[in-house]
């Protein structure tokens, strides 16, 4: 049953690669300003679901709607235009490019007449520093290539890129996987702040403690299908783990 204030709705979403069904019959209602956990074992279909929502792949079947209107997320550019930003697990960074260039890839800041397409390097550096300030990294040299950064710093750059626009929905695929304890805490704090700012967050994580810490509801996938969903307040990290293993939700 659809929630009253459903912002993002998925109906019968499926994805097949030849004879392999990576995802089938996924129904999901996500309310505005919600923080949802998406959990499942390897091969459960989490990444495929994310790639469909981020426009990186097209569903073989099913319908996606935002604010009650059916939409096609034909490409990552479409997703971004719809206010869906994604932090990918592999971060999707260009290592040789600078921090500022990575953050503004695809959304470059320009100077002069737009038709000339002249890059405003200084404004991009300043804006990148302001974005990274949220993670305490505003003091980094924004001209440094990403290949020079630590794992946590790269994660922050990828997060800053996801948050550079006015995203309504932020999808995070294993955002703390490569991070230490303190950096993970910062990411979780950021998710809480995003929630406070009215942003909807879809958190994909193998870390049940993280999921328990910030989500209000957890959707569990098993072998490409939705096994069920449960309110976070009604479960525990251990229970979540057991549900992921068994595929029985409740």
């Amino acid at each position: 049953m659809a929630l009253v204030d459903t912002m993002l709705a998925l109906r019968g979403i499926g994805k097949s690669y030849g004879a392999i069904h990576a995802l089938a019959g996924i129904d999901l209602d996500i309310a505005a300003r919600d923080v949802i956990g998406i959990c499942g074992d390897n091969g459960a279909g989490k990444s495929t679901l994310i790639r469909i929502l981020s426009g990186a792949e097209q569903p073989s079947e099913g319908e996606i709607s935002i604010d009650g209107q059916a939409i096609a997320i034909a490409s990552p550019a479409t997703a971004l235009a719809r206010g869906i930003a994604t932090l990918y697990q592999d971060l999707a960074l260009a290592p040789r490019l600078s921090i500022a260039q990575n953050i503004f890839m695809g959304a470059e800041l320009l100077r002069g007449p737009p038709a000339l397409g002249l890059l405003d390097h200084r404004r991009m550096r300043d804006a990148a520093a302001a974005l990274l300030d949220r993670f305490g990294l505003g003091g980094l040299d924004m001209n440094r290539p990403v290949s020079d950064l630590s794992g946590g710093q790269r994660q922050a750059v990828a997060l800053a890129r996801a948050l550079r626009g006015k995203a309504r929905i932020v999808i995070m695929d294993e955002p703390t996987a490569a991070l230490g304890v303190a950096e993970s805490a910062e990411v979780l704090d950021l998710i809480r702040r995003l929630h406070g700012e009215g942003v909807t967050v879809l958190l994909v994580s193998h870390d049940m403690e993280d999921v328990m810490a910030v989500t209000s509801r957890v959707v569990i996938l098993k072998k490409g299908r939705k096994a069920g969903e449960i309110e976070t307040a009604r479960t525990t990290a251990r229970h979540l783990g057991e549900m992921i293993m068994s595929g029985v939700v409740g």
């Binding site: 997703a79 960074l93 260039q101 890839m105 000339l116 397409g117 890129r161």
Partner: peptide, 22 residues
Amino acid sequence: TRGGFRLVCTGENVEAARLAGL
């Protein structure tokens, strides 16, 4: 320029460029 920068981005990491909407 934006056009040249996007060419560099595409060559550096085509998947990252695609996911960034290029």
